[in-house]
Amino acid sequence: MFRQFLRALGPVRNRLSRTVAGNGAGVPGSNFERNCVSKEEQLTEALKKSLPGTTYISVEDISGGCGAMFEVSIEAKEFIGLPRVKQHRLVTDSLKQEISEMHGIRIHTNPTPTDK
């Protein structure tokens, strides 16, 4: 009975040993991590393209590495004179396709400071 139990755990044990050896999630260079980084870059490029007056942008995966939730901080000239709700709407309209694949998103916006 115990031997059957150990035999049944064989695939799980092999999967765990591959994770520890460096082929699992969260290990630098894994497919999982490369996918998350490329998603952050994809979001950054989409925002830069739709808001060319961007002076600062930060996109961070806050889902623990699975790419389901992101935090976006952005400063752009397009936000000058707009209420925060309209600023956020510009961001969500820019990322409409990407947001449909996410679990959630946090948005922080600021207008670019004008020189006095």
Rank of each mutant, 00 (worst) to 15 (best):
V72I: 15
T54K: 00
S17Q: 14
I57C: 10
A8P: 00
I107S: 05
P52R: 08
I62P: 01
L47P: 05
E71G: 00
S63A: 13
E45W: 00
C36K: 10
F70V: 04
C36A: 12
F5N: 12
I74S: 08
E101H: 11
E33W: 05
G26S: 07
E98I: 01
E71H: 12
Q42H: 12
L43Y: 07
T114C: 10
V59R: 04
A46H: 04
R18A: 14
L16F: 13
V59A: 09
P28E: 11
H103D: 14
I74H: 03
V59K: 00
G67R: 08
V59C: 03
Q97W: 00
E98C: 05
F70T: 07
N31W: 04
R89Q: 15
Q42L: 14
L82R: 14
V37W: 02
T112K: 13
G67M: 10
L6K: 11
T55W: 01
K48N: 12
L47Y: 02
M1V: 06
K39F: 03
V37I: 13
A46I: 01
V91P: 03
I74R: 06
R89E: 15
E40V: 05
T109Q: 06
N14L: 12
I99L: 15
H108P: 02
G10M: 08
K48R: 15
T114L: 15
S73N: 10
L95V: 04
F79I: 09
I74W: 08
A8Q: 12
F5P: 03
C66G: 05
I62C: 02
D61I: 03
K96L: 07
V72K: 05
T109V: 02
P52V: 01
V12N: 03
S100I: 00
E78W: 04
